[in-house]
Simulated assay, not measured.
Amino acid sequence: MIVHLVADDPGIWSQIFNYDNYGELLALVTNSLIAGAVLGVVGGLISVVVMMRDLAFAVHGIAELSFAGASAALLAGVNVAAGSLAGSIVAALVIGALGVRAADRNSAIGVLMPFGLGLGVLFLALYKGRAANKFGLLTGQIVAVDTPQMTWLLGISALALAALAVVWRPLTFASADPDVAAARGVPVRALSPVFTVILALAVSVAIQVVGALLVLALVVTPAAAAMRVTASPRLVPLLSVAFAVTSMVGGILLALGSSIPISPYVTTISFTLYLICRAVGARRTRAGWSGRPATSATA
């Protein structure tokens, strides 16, 4: 029914894909394109550790409190990026304090998520400004990255990347095999809250472009796709970053000529890449399975 409605109504297609005056519009989103590429690098790298540590649910929990912080800042008339960052850091600290084991952590996040979303909805309901500002916090806006926000975004992204560079090797080692890492002197317990704070930094900047509801497409899906086609510790981060940058920049370029928020475009590209990687991985698995008996017989 929905497919027929879209197919029969050219007005809907013009809202989704409209490239009139595209060149002029492209000049207006230079900051957003730079922001999208930077977020793709940060999100792609963070995504690898998120998948290794099974923290996809934590991403959602941090995003909800980050949304609450951004909404509170919007209502108070202060820097929205600072509010988003504050909400993310609070969420990271609370998650780290309430849950060490996975079951405890997930329970704490399950409690935080509706609370954070409820606070955000309350603050937005009290806000009397432009409706686009409210909607953008949830679904993202391609023209929302002005120069002050760009400064915040680049600064926080640089901080997150620097922190990742310092802890990357012990962090990935501890994520892959915590028992062996602990036996070799890696501070496994200390790395957990450190990464949660780095994750909070990444989520706080991602919300500025893709919105709170769909941040998972940037911080989870890229590595999930990459891990479907390779297990190489070198290739997974590279592919994850490539997928995240493609999703972000491609989503901005597609959304530019429409009246639709950026999020559906970013998530569609990200999900398509995941499906392709899943199909490639499944094909390799079948080929490997059918090839093993022949090799054994030959041997």
Rank of each mutant, 00 (worst) to 15 (best):
N31L: 11
G23Q: 10
T230Y: 14
L253N: 08
S263H: 00
L119R: 08
A181V: 04
D54A: 11
V219M: 15
L75D: 04
Y274C: 07
I142P: 01
K134I: 04
A81P: 08
F17R: 10
L5A: 14
A226W: 14
G136N: 13
S290L: 13
A63L: 02
S71M: 04
A73I: 12
F195G: 04
A70N: 04
P114F: 00
F67K: 03
A58N: 03
L216P: 01
T285K: 13
G288F: 03
P170R: 02
A162N: 07
S290H: 15
S204V: 09
Q141Y: 07
A27D: 11
L124R: 09
I34M: 14
N18S: 14
L25M: 13
S270F: 05
V49P: 00
D146G: 07
A63K: 01
R228L: 11
V197Q: 14
A287G: 01
M1K: 04
L218D: 11
A70L: 08
S192W: 03
T221F: 09
V50T: 13
T246W: 02
V219P: 02
I62M: 11
L153T: 04
P233N: 06
T295Y: 15
V188K: 06
Y274G: 04
V180T: 15
R169T: 10
Q149F: 01
V194G: 11
A297T: 15
I46G: 02
A181T: 05
I276H: 06
L235H: 11
G120F: 05
Q208G: 06
A200T: 06
V111N: 00
V249Y: 09
C277V: 09
S259I: 06
V6Y: 10
V3A: 15
G251N: 06
A91Q: 00
A162T: 12
F173G: 03
T295P: 00
A27F: 07
V50Q: 09
P237L: 08
V143M: 11
R101A: 10
G61L: 01
V80H: 06
L159I: 15
P10C: 06
L159V: 14
V100Y: 12
L26F: 10
L75E: 06
R189S: 14
A76W: 12
A162F: 13
A190H: 12
S71T: 05
A97F: 01
T151Q: 12
G40I: 11
A125T: 14
I16H: 09
V78M: 13
V245I: 13
A282C: 02
I62N: 03
V236H: 03
I16F: 11
P261G: 06
A226H: 14
V219H: 04
A202K: 00
T246L: 13
I46D: 00
L171T: 01
P237S: 12
G61C: 01
A212P: 07
L273P: 02
G83T: 13
